[in-house]
Each structure stands twice: as C-alpha cells, then as structure tokens.
Simulated scan of single mutants.
Amino acid sequence: MSEDFYEVLGVSRDASEEEIQQAYREKAREYHPDVSDDPDAEEKFKKAKKAKEVLLDDEKRRMYDQMGHERFEQAEKRGATGGGGAGGMGGMGGRGQGNPFGDMGGMNDIFEQFFGGGGGGRDAPRQGQDLKTRLSVSLEEAYEGLTRNLTVTRPETCPDCDGAGHPPDADAETCPECNGQGQTTRVQQTPLGRVQQTQTCRRCEGEGTLYSETCSTCGGEGKVRNEATLQVDIPPGIQDGQSLRMEGEGAPGESGGRNGDLLIEVRVEEHDQFDRDGDDLRFTKAVSFPQAVFGATVEVPTLDGSVEMDLDAGTQSGEVLRLQGKGMPRLRRRGHGDLYVQVQIVTPSDLNEEQHEALEAFAEAGGEEIDVEQGFFEKIKNSF
C-alpha cells in the first residue's frame, strides 16, 4: 500500500473515531467485491480495511502520525518478521542473555524509528507538515463541480539562504552539546533492561553545527511565508465538511523530505429553496386548492432546470412526492440522489365575488364536511 491511510478513507488527519468509522462504511459499501463493479474493488476494499484498523487503534495511530506512512509500514513489516531471531523477537536467549532487549532485531528497529534513533540523524529526510484551509461553495457549485483559484499563505523555502537559515559565508563551529552529531542520546534502565533514546539536539536543532550569523530574510528559520494561488478541482457531489487533499502543496520538507499536503475543508452554503440530506434534496411546492382537488401538472425547480410533476386528484397538503434522480450527484459514483417534493396547499385569502360565490355553493353542497381518515395527521407529521 502506498497511499496515506487518511487519504484512502477521505478523512482529515484530526478525524474522530466516528468519522473514520463512517468513512470506512462508505468505502466498504462502494468497494466490497460482492457488490462493486470496479475492477480494483478488492484491492481498494483491503486498503480501506487496513486504514480503518490502524486509525482506530490509538497506539498505532500515534505511531503512524509520528513516523509517516512509509516508515510505519516498513517498521510494521520488520515487527511482523521479527528480524530472523528465535521466536520472531530477535532471539531472547542470544547475545546479552541478561538483557531481554539485547538483540531484538526488527522490534529494536521499531523503537529506533519511533524514538528517533538509527537513521534519524541530522541528514535524515523529514516530511513537511500538512496545512489546512477552508473553501466555501454554493449548492449549485457543489452540484456542477468546478475549478476555483484558492490563495493560501504557507511557509516556503527561503530563497536567500536556500533553507539553510544562515548566510553561505557565515563562520561555523561544531556544536559542543552533541559534538557535531546532531543528536543526543539518553540511556534509561528499565525492569526489562536498558532502553536507549535518541533525540535531536536542541541547541543546534539537529545541524551538528553552530553558525555566527542567521539569515536576515528568514531569521534563521530557513522558511518564509508567501502567498500562493492554487487551482482546486471540486468534484460534483461534494458534501459539507468533506476535505480535499492537494499533495505536496503543504509546508516544505527538510533534508530532501517531501512537502506536506494541503487539506481543504469544503463548506457548502445553505440554499434558499432546497434542503440537502446527503445525496437527496427536499423542496416545498405551493399549489392551489383546485390543483390539489382536480389534479394538475405543476412545474418544480431543480438544480438542473425546471421539470414537470403530476399531481393526482385529491392530493393532500403535506404529501411528499419523489422525483427520482433529481437530487445531488453521488460523489465519485454514478447516478444522482432524489428530489423529495412536499406539497403545500395554499388557502386563498383574497377572493373575488365569483370565487366567493363558488365556494359558498361548494359549502352548501356539503363541501365543508371533512372526513378525516384515521392516521391522516400522523402522516402529515411524519412528512415533515
């Protein structure tokens, strides 16, 4: 697996357990081999399952966020194979019998990567941080999909010192704190033996060298904040609160590490006519009393233009009719949701003389007697 687990599920890096569970259920429904037509459904389903298992385990998720995707998978593989020692743990009775951690093979590699030792020196590539921003779109834009320019302020490599944090001609000396290693090591004695913890040197920040000057442009940070204008592709059917990921558009990496990603949370604005419920839309259509009594063909707006809807004779106020396929596009899937139209009969308030006489005749003929069938009001309540 090469994709980031958060990207596989389509969630942000601070997603809650509930959001992760919901995202996994959606992926499972979409890619389960028994129901999906996607030729890669089985592989995608396995990736989603693996992502869920890691991100719902607090300890694994903490290590995953600390180490990054590639290092986590490498460490996990080494932990599974055990580095070739007896019992898969590097030989508990091998070298250093008095120390259970004496030669742990693959497990020791996990400790080294997690605590920053072994390969975590000053020249080790470090991935840049992910950045977050928000983008608002209208319901119409979410229906159609669009490409929009987005201006973000983000850190970039300083152009004057090329990220070094100091002028090229600055005097340099070996850091006395770490003796030029860029790391300091602390050994702890535990009931299970000695554990060695390696950390980046705080004084030289992993450089191993101290410089007489700092870059005046970036103040020694090696980065400056600049505005960047990016083109964002917003797919049709995007829902409020979902995030888009732009790879490599986050903070710059260090020592050759890849840039972080830019996470864009999309906010879909409320609409003055339609209420959204997932892929479905809801709309209230006002009709006249004669239209409801005799039946009629009425015009109903949709996000793709107006359509005609047939009312049966005797349609009741509050009744809900469904227009199939007239809702929102299903995100990255075929088809659309539905449009549910609730009928609202409008009582006339300003009658002319002819209308008044006609209604009086209707009342005299028994039209003011209403036979309310059992459950009618319950149906009206449920329709809302």
Results as ranks from 00 to 15, higher is better:
Phe5Thr: 00
Asp14Ala: 06
Glu17Tyr: 04
Glu18Gly: 08
Gln22Ile: 05
Arg29Ser: 15
Glu30Ser: 10
Tyr31Phe: 15
Asp34Ala: 15
Ser36Gly: 00
Asp40Val: 13
Asp40Ser: 14
Glu42Trp: 11
Ala48Thr: 00
Ala48Ile: 10
Leu55Cys: 11
Asp57Thr: 09
Asp57Gly: 06
Met63Val: 03
Tyr64Val: 03
Asp65Ser: 10
Glu70Gly: 02
Glu70Leu: 00
Glu76Met: 11
Gly79Val: 01
Gly84Asn: 07
Gly85Ile: 10
Ala86Met: 13
Met92Tyr: 08
Gly96Lys: 10
Gly96Cys: 02
Gly98Ile: 06
Pro100Ser: 14
Gly106His: 08
Ile110Lys: 08
Phe111Pro: 02
Phe115His: 11
Gly116Phe: 08
Gly119Lys: 03
Arg122Ala: 12
Ala124His: 09
Leu131Asn: 02
Ser136Phe: 08
Val137His: 09
Val137Cys: 11
Ser138Cys: 03
Glu140Cys: 04
Ala142Pro: 03
Thr147Lys: 15
Val152Met: 06
Thr153Ala: 14
Pro155Asn: 07
Asp160Lys: 15
Cys161Asp: 09
Ala164Ile: 07
Pro167Thr: 11
Pro167Tyr: 05
Pro167Cys: 02
Thr174Asn: 14
Cys175Gly: 01
Cys175Asp: 02
Asn179Val: 02
Val187Lys: 13
Gln188Cys: 03
Gln189Asp: 07
Gln197Gly: 11
Arg202Trp: 11
Arg203Ala: 13
Gly206Ala: 00
Leu210Ser: 01
Ser212Asn: 10
Glu213Ala: 10
Cys215Ile: 05
Thr217Glu: 08
Thr217His: 09
Cys218Gly: 05
Ala228Gly: 06
Leu230Asn: 00
Ile234Phe: 00
Pro235Cys: 09
Asp240Ile: 03
Gly241Asn: 12
Gly241Cys: 09
Gln242Glu: 14
Gln242Tyr: 00
Ser243Phe: 06
Ser243Cys: 11
Arg245Met: 13
Arg245Lys: 13
Arg245Asp: 04
Met246Ala: 02
Glu247Trp: 07
Glu247Ala: 03
Glu247Gln: 07
Gly248Glu: 01
Glu254Gly: 00
Ser255His: 14
Gly256Gln: 12
Gly256Thr: 10
Gly260Ile: 01
Leu263Ser: 07
Ile264His: 00
Ile264Val: 15
His271Gln: 05
Gln273Phe: 00
Asp275Asn: 15
Asp275Ile: 13
Arg276Val: 04
Asp280Gly: 05
Leu281Phe: 06
Arg282Asn: 09
Ala286Leu: 14
Ala292Phe: 06
Ala292Ile: 07
Thr297Ala: 01
Glu299Gln: 05
Leu303Ser: 12
Glu308Gln: 11
Glu308Lys: 13
Asp310Glu: 01
Leu311Ala: 05
Ala313Arg: 07
Gly314Gln: 00
Ser317Gly: 14
Ser317Ile: 02
Glu319Thr: 08
Val320Tyr: 00
Arg322Ile: 09
Gly325Val: 00
Lys326Ala: 06
Gly327Trp: 12
Pro329Gln: 10
Leu331Gly: 09
Arg333Ile: 06
Arg334Met: 08
Val341Phe: 09
Gln342Cys: 03
Gln344Glu: 14
Glu354Ala: 04
His356Asp: 12
Glu360Phe: 02
Ala363Gly: 08
Ala365Trp: 01
Ala365Arg: 11
Gly366His: 00
Gly366Phe: 00
Gly367Cys: 12
Gly367Asp: 03
Ile370Val: 15
Val372Arg: 05
Glu373Trp: 01
Gln374Ala: 08
Gln374Lys: 15
Gln374Leu: 08
Phe377Trp: 15
Ile380Lys: 07
Phe384Thr: 15
Phe384Lys: 14
